[in-house]
């Protein structure tokens, strides 16, 4: 499963993507990532699974792409 980070989240994770396996759902993934990268706990972002935004906890399957997307403000 591929996790993609965008915008300022890359400043936190120091990498634009990461491979993680064996995570059951988006809530578990969020917990795992927020433990690994603590500033993510307060960062504002939404989660998309395979190109679709999700609001509720969503089951993850092998081969899924999960994106963590923050807002940008520059212009």
């Amino acid at each position: 499963m591929e996790i993609l980070f965008f915008g300022n989240l890359i400043d936190i994770t120091r990498q634009p993507k990461e491979l993680i396996e064996g995570v059951a759902d988006t809530a578990t993934l969020k917990q795992l990532l927020e433990k690994k990268y603590q500033p993510l706990q307060t960062a504002k972002y939404f989660i998309a699974v395979n190109g679709k935004m999700v609001q509720e906890n969503t089951i993850l399957n092998q081969g899924d792409t999960v994106a963590l997307m923050p807002p940008f403000s520059g212009g």
């Binding site: 300022n8 307060t42 960062a43 504002k44 939404f46 935004m53 923050p70 807002p71 403000s73 520059g74």
Partner: peptide
């Protein structure tokens, strides 16, 4: 915008251009 990002980030969270 608020459907996607309901709450603004903190001032120190995101750098400007």
């Amino acid at each position: 915008y608020r459907d996607v990002f309901p709450v603004p980030p903190a001032a120190d969270e995101i750098k400007s251009c």
